[in-house]
Design a protein around this nucleic acid. Sequence first.
DNA 1: GGTATACTGAAAATCTTTCGCATCTTGCCC
DNA 2: GGGCAAGATGCGAAAGATTTTCAGTATACC
Lengths: 150, 150
Amino acid sequence: MVGSARDVEIPLENQQIKQAGLKVTAPRVKILEILEQSGKRHMSAEDVYKALLSHDEEIGLATVYRVLTQFEGAGLVCRRHFEGGQSVFELNSGEHHDHLVCVKCGKIVEFLDTTIEKRQARIAAEEGFKIEDHSLVVYGVCPDCQKKRG
Amino acid sequence: MVGSARDVEIPLENQQIKQAGLKVTAPRVKILEILEQSGKRHMSAEDVYKALLSHDEEIGLATVYRVLTQFEGAGLVCRRHFEGGQSVFELNSGEHHDHLVCVKCGKIVEFLDTTIEKRQARIAAEEGFKIEDHSLVVYGVCPDCQKKRG
DNA sequence: GGTATACTGAAAATCTTTCGCATCTTGCCC
DNA sequence: GGGCAAGATGCGAAAGATTTTCAGTATACC
Ligand SMILES: [Mn+2]
Ligand SMILES: [Mn+2]
Ligand SMILES: [Zn+2]
Ligand SMILES: [Zn+2]
């Protein structure tokens, strides 16, 4: 047998999952791949599930929810609660950011504004609150959707 | 029969409901009363339902949801989506505001910061979005809860 | 009062997410 | 490489929140 173990590249996903303290299983690797490769940065569990189906992966919806929750706990993904029933997940970029969401087409623009972040911190401090987290979502109509309709 | 129609005061609730284009019915009046009289400014449908029960009102939970949704459509109440399952409703004060929520005890502090509001408007404008709404919720631990635990 | 229409309560249906559990896998030791 | 225990998966059932359905009832208006 010629060649070393290096002939087979160990996918980055496996490292991430292992480092998160989770066993490397097919569902976990596939779900992470979907999140990394999909054009949508923000996907609902259902979105992920459908993407898996379209890749002919036999993974149950319950497993998708379970794995996404584990990934969240491990800091691999962030869960968002925008309006409209389902939670959406995105890979954790490591940097906090907020969202601008188009109410017509669902387009999402991410932003980070230090002025807002500072004001929030000040307001919380004035009330004596110790901030744990925050959620800022601005809903509006994106340029494309404004063109399409009056 | 002495006395005019003015002897019987028409409750303000009835006016508000009528002006909203809705028929004045017992459930609607009671629910509006609960929202006005309850110490909690922010109530879930379940909260309202329980308050009704404690007032010996026979109103179904489905009706509570229906009425709250109608009130929202009529601009009488605002629906909020804080973390944790249920939506909460509050009377529409006519003035927008955001929320600081204690993750331990649920205490809510309302605030309005023009600096933040302006920054949001600018950010949306830069992206060409026409703002329709926004939701800013800061989660943290209130002073009381900080004292109670390490 | 009489009537068309809107409203109501209760149950059933939806929708999203989580559980229970029998059945597989993975990670690890020999 | 095989054996094993802990941990994961898939499936169906269950749960929790909200909405819909529908037959009976109340309201607004004449
Ligand atoms: Mn994002
Ligand atoms: Mn409020
Ligand atoms: Zn759009
Ligand atoms: Zn508190």
